[in-house]
């Protein structure tokens, strides 16, 4: 079946079976590999993308439900003000280790800063609770979000 997807400002026609998780459409069909597979059951956050600006787990979002919705992935984050600030903070603080979870971390961090420009440590801990990092870079994720808030305020 053909679906029409609006992704990072472009429209893509993709051929996929109904019920296919958006994650696999993005990766296998569009070959955009920044969005990662970690668990497939919405418990790690590696696959986080934005739908109309809201972070969602793309492994549990189905292609049937996203027609007409603006989908944004990590590849387009540097074009947004908040995304660029988060990326800058991440590089300044060397947040990453293996890096595999970090696309998802950044997508969630941008979601948090969009609704809460000055999050406290507790705000961060509760908003980011669904994004697992097996390398345990959490200390720097917390600092990175606060640094991005500073950059945005300046």
């Amino acid at each position: 079946m053909t679906f029409s997807l609006k992704l990072n400002g472009e429209t893509h026609e993709v051929d996929a079976e109904p019920g296919t998780p958006l994650l696999w459409v993005i990766r296998d069909e569009l070959k955009m590999t920044g969005t990662k597979f970690g668990c497939g059951v919405a418990s790690c956050g590696a696959c986080t993308v934005h739908l109309d600006g809201e972070p969602v787990r793309s492994c549990q979002t189905y292609i049937d439900d996203v027609e007409g919705v603006e989908i944004t992935t990590i590849e387009a984050m540097s074009d947004t003000k908040i995304g660029a600030a988060v990326q800058q903070a991440w590089v300044e603080l060397d947040v990453v280790q293996c890096g595999y979870c970090q696309s998802g971390q950044i997508m969630s961090a941008v979601g948090l800063l969009s609704e809460n420009p000055k999050p406290s440590a507790d705000d961060i801990d509760s908003y980011m609770a669904g994004n697992a990092c097996r390398c345990a870079t959490y200390q720097r994720i917390r600092a990175g979000i606060q640094r991005a808030a500073e950059i945005l305020e300046a």
Binding site: M32, T33, F37, I74, S78, V95, V96, G99, Q102, S103
Partner: peptide
């Protein structure tokens, strides 16, 4: 001294084996 792989791991361009297509 910063990590050399921070940028590619924050903009989605880092290639892991899972990203081989």
């Amino acid at each position: 001294v910063r990590r050399l792989d921070s940028k590619i791991k924050t903009d989605g361009t880092a290639n892991f084996a899972m990203d081989v297509y």
